[in-house]
Computed example of a mutant assay.
Amino acid sequence: MELIRLYDTQQELDAHILDNHEELKGQDNLDWKVLALQVELGECANEWRGFKKWSNDRKPRTKNKCIACHGVGEVRQPIEGYFMTCPRCDGSGREDNHNPLLEEYVDCLHFILSIGLELNFIVEEIDVQPHSDNDIIDAFTSLITGVGILRYQTENIENSYKDILAGFIQLGWMLGYTWEQVEQAYFEKNKVNHERQEVGY
């Protein structure tokens, strides 16, 4: 898969951020980008929920619950006391097509690309094949650990970065996303990120 378009897009966003935050110019920004990526990986795992073995609710969060009916699909009429189909979500229990898990995944992608730019490692093309390994817990743990090690690594850092990128793409497949879905969600979120910079987010 080709990645150069994603790096180009990320470079524009990073430049926009630097324009709004002069204090970041000319300094090493790897430390906070690494921490941000680890946090985003944790948030992605939280939306996946599969590690929450103590809970009976371990389904991935791929849709938002309706705030009117709390995902039930119906609401009680306060005066009459009977239940009716929720008018906000039409009884689906879901408010929109927003996919929290995919959004957290592409938030991670933003930081992976930004770290590559920070290190001057642009991977133009990568050949990663989906495989049957479905240990998503191990995939998350390996990525979070690998990113942390990358922060302090002095040798073979480019290979480590490529391994993180490949592992992250594998994680996307394990979560059930095609690369086309990931790219589309990335560009949509990138637009939001630019808008946030415009309003002083």
Rank of each mutant, 00 (worst) to 15 (best):
P78F: 14
C66Y: 02
F51I: 13
K59R: 08
C66D: 00
C66T: 00
Q38L: 03
Q38P: 02
K33W: 05
P78Y: 13
P60Q: 06
P60M: 07
K65L: 11
W32P: 02
K33L: 15
L35F: 06
W32D: 09
Q27Y: 11
Q38E: 08
K52Q: 13
D31W: 11
P60C: 01
L30T: 05
F51G: 01
R61L: 14
H70T: 12
R49M: 03
E74V: 10
R49G: 00
N64P: 01
Q27W: 15
V39T: 15
A68V: 14
K65Q: 14
K53R: 11
T62W: 07
K63W: 06
C66F: 01
E40R: 12
L41G: 10
K52H: 08
E40M: 03
Q77H: 15
A36E: 12
A36M: 13
F51A: 14
V72I: 13
G73N: 03
N29V: 15
E74S: 10
Q27V: 10
E43Q: 04
E74C: 09
H70L: 15
K59H: 07
E74H: 15
V39S: 09
L37E: 09
E43G: 01
R58H: 03
G81H: 09
K53E: 05
E43K: 05
L35Q: 10
K53D: 04
E43V: 00
N64S: 15
E80H: 13
A36I: 04
A68E: 12
I79Q: 11
R76N: 13
A36F: 05
P60F: 02
K53M: 05
D28C: 03
N64R: 13
C44L: 07
D31L: 10
I67W: 14
